[in-house]
Design a protein around this nucleic acid. Structure first.
Length: 711
RNA sequence: GGGCAGUUAGCUCAGUUGGUUAGAGCGAACGGUUUACAUCCGUUAGGUCAUAGGUUCGAAUCCUAUACUGCCAACCA
């Protein structure tokens, strides 16, 4: 036996993975013991390469999958990639900007094709990276979110929802990102605390406070609280207002939503450009005019449509919001309409979660999904225990969100995605899987929110691979808690709606990866750990072990180079201990019976311990306590098996030791060693497979398909 | 105003139905060239488990309050 003293991952990992994959053992076995086990991989976005967060899910899911596969269950881990509509659009838009090209001037089909190629390139890179991390998923069943089969199912679902009255087209005030030229769902809005001047301005006899001076031309009312004594005389009446572009009459209405304690207790109502004002108008439709759009999709004042012959309006027309606000403030000051300015007013502002620009609310026709009925079913399923969360506290968060859910805007004014399967002809609407055959129908140009299709991912993928009957509902959904609402909740709702069953029985949520100073990783901070770089330097096993060790479900994952190094050392320990074992077994060793009566007390003790450890480890893995399992086998292997047992049996292998006792100890040594590397395999698959392959007594083609020692 | 967590050794974190001297990794100190491994081995130091009450024979673990930290969700102009 001539093995190097140090384990060199790079010499083994690639080759071992190739052999595993070629062997076909990543595919589920035809006949399995017990329940089938299925994990649908959270499909990574095909717009970049893998980051350390992806390594977390690979590690956790691969541990589960390898464990259940070794237990003999028919096991499917289905990989995939997401088109990631808006996210990819943002990435690609940046790329185009760098190249000096303009997104909005490229024809739709051309752009789509370009992004398609872009995502396919990324997807191929990611597949290689997933392999590098050791993911034992079934590549033959990989799916992409825009595969025709998936798109067909997504469209069918939408049609069903339309027919059931759950999908509807509505004109509403929605979140509009001026930079990205699309609407966003409420979940994609980030509220940021900002400091802006609060202007106290005169509207005829009434003084009111506002931040958004520039929307004043779209005001259709003034609102006060019904009980506010200061304004009783005006309620229901019109007041004359100097608007800077003329004098006009505007009605004063009473609405409970107005807080008399804020500002002057009076607000201007601009239904077209403020969600609260929009709601106020909804309640007073008969009294006041509706939305009057004075800001266009690019965030510029658009006045000439409403005030075509107004010379004063020309001054403001076309100004951007920030500039308009400044100019209007100055002019109001000059006109004596400005009472005072509070320059340090703090309030929270809705911004785009990608570009942080302030969102401009707009009134647009969009497709919405009615959420209340879907949410009710999802909550019921969770209450009945059909879906269980690890850890349980996420259930509370889940309920809290679903109880307050509002309808979901699924329309996006972008190119990259599944085009909403709706056709219009005049006033008529057609919803279907494919275009109507007659002439004259034009398809909706909007595409679905990505999460509308990824929300169907578990059943959509399994239906297209033909595994639905066997593997749905799937066993576990493992993903980050940050997408609990975006994805997990939607999968439960849509899965229940379409299939009548929950998409998965367990939800395991992992946390965010942070650096050793607890900082969130970001490119700008320069503290990003590149998983592939770590794999190059320390091996995939070291990274995997570092990502589970001491990490409990739902909590953030702290990782540092020190920690990775420590587990690289552990992999090396496994390597060296195995070298030692093989050296002492010799090339001609044949596994055989252990004579328990003649066994030494040391041998007996270690046999008892490996059984206990196996039991505990199995229990932990069944309970999704991966960190406890990892620690159990780590401690046993390093500090009991290596530090103590191997040292204690050295005399038995010394020259002149009794041959019979030695033979018996060899059997014990082999048994305990083999059980250990089986137990370690889900965590550190490469080094354990490497030493198994070198073992003189390997009984199966691979360690990955060995039997989990049952107790 | 709301909801959910966290507060344990110098640092980062485990600790699953409450039970003997509270653990790990890294770091620190000291000592080891015995042929598996210096990516190693042995020994040691270090914590009133945020604070104050309560339940209990017994609490890091359950309850209440307080403080600090973090996160989520939010229609306050």
């Amino acid at each position: 036996m001539d093995l190097p003293k140090v384990f060199k991952p790079e010499e083994f990992e690639l080759e071992i993975y190739k052999q595993w994959e070629a062997s076909g053992n990543f595919s589920p076995s035809k006949d399995g013991k017990g329940e089938p086990f299925c994990v649908i991989m959270p499909p990574p976005n095909s717009n970049g390469s893998l980051h350390v967060g992806h390594a977390v899910f690979v590690t956790l899911e691969d541990i589960m999958v390898r464990f259940h596969r070794m237990k003999g269950q028919s096991t499917l881990w289905l990989p995939g990639a997401d088109h990631a509509g808006f996210e990819t659009q943002v990435v690609y838009q940046k790329k185009l900007e760098k190249e000096g090209r303009n997104w909005f001037t490229i024809p739709r089909e051309e752009l789509y094709q370009e992004i398609w190629d872009f995502t396919q390139t990324n997807k191929a890179v990611m597949e290689g990276q997933l392999r590098r991390l050791g993911a034992s998923c079934d590549w033959s069943k990989e799916r992409f979110a825009l595969d025709p089969g998936i798109v067909k199912i997504v469209n069918q679902t939408f049609k069903k929802m339309y027919d059931d009255g759950l999908a509807y087209r509505g004109e509403r005030i929605v979140n509009w990102c001026v930079k990205h030229q699309t609407t966003l769902s409420d979940l994609e809005v980030k509220h940021e605390e900002k400091e802006d001047p609060l202007y106290f301005i005169k509207y005829g006899p009434i003084t009111l406070a506002t931040v958004r001076l520039e929307t004043k031309f779209g005001d259709t009312a003034i609102a006060v609280h019904p009980d506010d004594e200061r304004y009783q005389q005006y309620i229901g009446k019109e007041v004359e207002v100097d608007t800077l572009i003329g004098k006009t009459k505007i009605k004063v209405i009473a609405d409970e939503a107005v807080d008399p304690a804020f500002g002057t207790g009076a607000v201007k109502v601009t239904p077209a450009h403020d969600p609260i004002d929009y709601d106020i108008w909804q309640r007073h439709k008969n009294e006041i005019p509706g939305p009057m759009i004075v800001i266009d999709q690019f965030g510029k004042l658009d006045l000439l449509k409403h005030f075509p012959d107004n010379e004063a309006a020309k001054k403001y027309h076309g100004l951007k919001i920030a500039e308009a606000r400044k100019v209007i403030a100055e002019d109001m000051e000059k006109a004596g309409l400005m009472v005072k300015i509070d320059p340090t007013y703090k309030h929270s502002v809705a911004t785009c979660y990608k570009c942080s620009n302030v969102l401009e609310p707009r009134v647009l026709p969009q497709w919405f999904i009615k959420m209340k009925p879907l949410a009710a079913k999802a909550m019921e399923a969770v209450r009945k225990g059909e879906v269980k969360f690890v850890t349980e506290r996420f259930e509370k968060i889940f309920f809290h969100w679903l109880e307050n859910i509002r309808d979901w805007n699924v329309s996006r004014q972008i190119v990259w995605g599944i085009r909403i399967p709706v056709w219009y002809k005049g006033e008529e609407i057609y919803v279907g899987e494919v275009a109507p055959t007659e002439e004259g129908w034009a398809q909706e140009t909007d595409v679905f929110d990505t999460w509308f299709s990824s929300g169907q991912w578990p059943f959509a993928t399994l239906k297209t691979t033909g595994d639905f009957e066997k593997f749905y509902p799937t066993t576990v959904m493992e993903t980050g808690w940050d997408i609990l609402f975006f994805w997990v909740a939607r999968m439960i709702m849509l899965g229940l709606y379409v299939t009548g069953e929950v998409p998965f029985k367990h939800v395991y949520l992992h946390g965010l990866v942070r650096d050793k100073d607890r900082q969130k990783m970001s490119k700008s901070k320069g503290n990003v750990i590149d998983p592939l770089g770590v794999v190059e330097n320390y091996g995939a096993d070291a990274l995997r072990m570092a990502l589970v060790f001491g990490v409990s479900a739902g909590n953030d994952i702290v990782i540092s180079e020190d920690k990775i190094r420590a587990h690289r050392n552990f992999a090396n320990k496994i390597w060296n201990a195995s070298r030692f074992v093989m050296m002492n077994l010799g090339d001609n060793f044949i596994p055989g019976q252990i004579d328990l009566e003649k066994a030494s007390s040391t041998d007996k003790a270690i046999l008892v311990r490996i059984e206990e450890v196996g039991k505990t480890l199995t229990k932990h893995l069944d309970n999704f306590d991966f960190h406890l399992g990892a620690e159990e086998i780590y401690q046993f292997f390093w500090h009991e098996f290596c530090d103590k047992y191997l040292e204690e049996i050295k005399p038995a292998f010394a020259e002149g030791a009794a041959e019979k006792a030695k033979v018996n100890t060899q059997q014990v040594l082999f048994k305990v060693w083999l059980a250990s590397i089986k137990y370690l395999h889900p965590f550190v698959p490469f080094v354990t497979e490497a030493v198994y392959q070198m073992s003189p007594a390997k009984q199966k083609e691979f360690l990955m398909i060995e039997d989990w020692p049952q107790n």
